[in-house]
Amino acid sequence: MTAKENSSRNDKALNAIDSIPRNESGPIFNEPWEAEAFAMTLALYEKGLFTWPEWAAVLSEEINRAQATGDPDLGDTYYRHWLSALERIVIKQGVTNAEHLGQLYDDWNHAAHTTPHGEPIVLSRDKSD
């Protein structure tokens, strides 16, 4: 995958989703996990899991919901809404369900807590199934 191909993929996402924070050279991320969430979304779009208008609808619902519950929406919480939208659309399209996602969350949390500091956190195979 060349940088050029990646940037044209970005352009498609940027054209479709007006609200993505960006500068002249592409999307801007404040923290690494934001880029991970963005990249996962791009990959799922390319797998045909949803169209950009479908994504935009779920994302704007999440943003509206957060605003309704008092989020000042200054831009710094944008990718939190993005992450919530990603969880929802993945469940809505039947890739997984909330229970399984919750189970993985608990498994990772458990793995982190039982890993002595200084060792890599890994999810053991038998736990994730």
């Binding site: 996990w33 990603l86 993985l104």
Partner: peptide, 30 residues
Amino acid sequence: DHSHLDDTALRVRSLETVLTEKGYIDPEAL
């Protein structure tokens, strides 16, 4: 004396895990 991942990190990891398991994403390509 043990490790800690915050809520956001746990959610991102959980999604990555399930999407990798189901073949929707390839961690290397990501």
